[in-house]
């Protein structure tokens, strides 16, 4: 079922678009990172660390801004097909149980999301190595893992909304939430206390990448500074609990409310 889901998701268009989004993120970020303006070898050596940081920072930012919404859109379309597509019903004949079918579909989606992030990570890493800007280190792996888990949670949110309302457009709402999250965490520079709403969002959808952002030493992320003392498991636990809740809710909707 998971294998079939990959086939379901990956039409030729989606395959090409997925690669295009990944390549666009990598090369646009490189172009924005002063790599081009500091092309002389001497300048390169001098600003290597700066360029490298800005390149990686851009990758994280644009990946959240572009890749996560792209994944949410693909998830929404897949969810719409799964909840409302008549062809889905032929898979539920011949002995397959609905919960197993649902888990298979989720696994397929999970594989797609992880492969997409893994591809971005590899391409970004190769660019880093080939341009001589630096090496792939564990911290980079760590951030990518967190971002991909975050994508999974947001995609599950899209599945849940499509299952609940049977309307594909509501599945795109998580993009707004994700973008809002990104905005409050990168643009608020003065007020470090955070409003109740910000805190609520932080608790609901923790991207859990702040320990890495802190290393980058950019004051943009100071809204998250207040959480620096919290152990990393705090955010991870919330994210996993949130994803688990969405998974179970979507499963329940898939089993009982496929009504059209």
């Amino acid at each position: 079922m998971a294998y079939d889901t990959l086939h379901k998701i990956l039409s030729l268009k989606v395959l090409i678009m997925s690669l295009a989004v990944v390549l666009a993120i990598v090369f646009v970020c490189l172009a924005m990172s002063d790599y081009m303006t500091a092309a002389e070898p001497a300048w390169h050596d001098l600003f290597r660390e700066h360029i490298s940081r800005s390149y990686i920072g851009n990758i994280y930012f644009f990946a959240q801004m572009l890749l996560t919404p792209f994944i949410v859109i693909i998830s929404t379309l897949a969810a719409h097909d799964m909840y409302r597509g008549e062809a889905e019903q032929i898979y539920l004949t011949g002995g397959l149980r609905k919960p197993v079918a649902f888990i298979g579909r989720m696994l397929g989606m999970l594989v797609y999301i992880l492969v997409l992030w893994w591809t971005l990570f590899l391409v970004a890493g190769f660019v880093l190595i080939f341009t001589g800007l630096g090496n792939i280190d564990l911290s980079m792996v760590d951030v990518f893992v967190k971002l991909s888990i975050n994508s999974v949670a947001i995609s599950l949110f899209a599945y849940f909304l499509v299952g609940l309302t049977k309307v594909a457009i509501t599945g795109i709402l998580p993009i707004l939430l994700a973008q809002y999250w990104l905005t409050v965490n990168s643009n608020i520079t003065l007020d470090t206390a955070g409003s109740a709403l910000h805190n609520a969002v932080n608790y609901l959808l923790p991207l859990n990448t702040f320990s890495r952002f802190a290393e980058v030493d950019i004051e943009y992320f100071d809204l998250l500074m207040q959480y620096q003392d919290l152990a990393p498991w705090h955010g991870s636990l919330l994210l996993i609990t949130f994803a688990l809740f969405l998974f179970l809710a979507s499963l329940e909707l898939y089993i009982t409310k496929q009504d059209q």
Partner: peptide, 14 residues
């Protein structure tokens, strides 16, 4: 049970 729905959409790369 075997089933043929009214409208079919199969994965296109198969």
């Amino acid at each position: 049970i075997g089933y043929l729905p009214e409208s079919l959409r199969f994965p296109e790369l198969y």
